[in-house]
């Protein structure tokens, strides 16, 4: 992408009355507004460096895994959609989960976030066994997810969407809710945090609009910003690039790498190979419900199992994953 052209497009997309953009696209990676004490302890550079010693094989052990899944099996009737023997996700890096259509990526993703229950297997997140934990409690442990079909809450304003994301709100208890003095001060803090995030995601001008009036890309941004209100340690993104205007792609990528640089762990499911090549630090490949390969993004295209999975086993050249780069 060429700088000027892209910036102009971005301007049109985000700021109707084109004012100057606050800074170079890189500034979106400054996630200081969401950095919590827990995240400050994570050295993302060191975490990435540590991946260098990890063998490129399915189920590889990571030096500091935040999420571990063991023997996770999910069947739909006679069909085994997911059968993952062992997966570890390294803390503080961006991990991509890829695979051809029908590989079970989204099913596996739902199992990892507890939006679906596996028939067998255990999952441990950040020291908590989450096998019998309801989906809504996962957020309190610091894992938050987004959805493939963006779930902007259409008939709520953007700022309401944001404020909803904060956890531990006193005013969300029924009896306290009718006594505004019990939660007004906390509400102010939450609102300030929400406004700072909206600023960061360049959505401030939409603050009081209904989320339903936003474009697809803006909804993606809102969903991501709202997820950050949870103050997560791990962000799970289900096809973050699906349906996003190319002009916004770069900005979204910037935000995702920004999460990592702030110390968060990111796992995303994606079809878009450009994105996988560009921002992921580690790639996990699924096919037919199994983990068939792992490794740094640059090596994945040469992996025989991956090539077979994508193209079938009869072919003669290595898969060219970075066609457009």
């Amino acid at each position: 992408m060429t700088g000027n052209n892209f910036e102009d497009q971005l301007k049109d997309e985000l700021i109707p009355d084109a004012g100057p953009i606050a800074g170079p696209p890189g500034d979106s990676s400054d996630m200081s507004v969401v950095t919590s004490e827990k995240l400050a302890l994570v050295d993302s550079e060191a975490a990435r460096a540590a991946l260098a010693d990890v063998p490129w094989e399915p189920g590889a052990k990571k030096p500091d895994p935040i999420l571990v899944a063991d023997n996770v099996v999910r069947r739909f009737g006679g069909l085994t959609a997911v059968d993952a023997e062992h997966v570890e996700v390294q803390r503080g890096v961006i991990t991509a989960l890829i695979g051809p259509n029908g590989a079970g990526k989204t099913t596996f993703f739902n199992l990892l976030t507890n939006f679906d229950t596996p028939d067998e297997g255990t999952r441990v997140f950040d020291g908590h066994n989450i096998d019998n934990v309801p989906a809504h409690k996962i957020a309190n442990y610091g894992m938050v997810r987004t959805f493939q079909l963006t779930k902007a809450l259409s008939k709520m304003t953007v700022i309401e969407n944001m404020k909803l994301g904060a956890t531990g709100q006193k005013g969300e208890t029924l009896w306290r809710s009718v006594l505004p003095f019990m939660w007004k001060s906390q509400e102010k803090e939450i609102e300030a945090r929400a406004d700072a995030l909206l600023e960061r995601f360049k959505l401030s001008h939409m603050r009081d609009e209904f989320a339903g009036t936003m474009s697809g890309g803006q909804r993606k941004l809102l969903e991501m910003a709202r997820a950050l209100m949870v103050e997560p340690t791990m962000v799970m993104l289900d096809e973050p690039m699906a349906g996003v205007n190319p002009a916004l792609t770069q900005s979204l990528l910037g935000h995702v790498t920004g999460l990592r640089d702030a110390g968060m762990t990111v796992l995303f499911v994606e079809h878009d190979m450009d994105m996988v090549q560009e921002i992921s630090d580690w790639v996990i490949v699924m096919a037919e419900g199994r983990i068939i390969a792992e490794g740094p993004p640059a090596t994945i295209g040469q992996n025989q199992a991956v090539v077979d999975a994508y193209l079938g086993s009869h072919h003669d050249s290595a898969l060219d994953l970075d066609v457009e780069l």
């Binding site: 976030t113 939006f115 989906a135 809504h136 409690k137 996962i138 957020a139 309190n140 938050v144 997810r145 987004t146 959805f147 779930k151 809450l153 259409s154 008939k155 709520m156 309401e160 404020k163 909803l164 994301g165 956890t167 969300e172 709202r226 997820a227 209100m229 949870v230």
Partner: peptide, 17 residues
């Protein structure tokens, strides 16, 4: 606000805890 979020999308509300 949580009620309205549930009306709009239950799964989104759940993902936010």
């Amino acid at each position: 606000r949580v009620l309205k979020a549930i009306r709009e999308d239950e799964d989104a509300a759940r993902s936010l805890g």
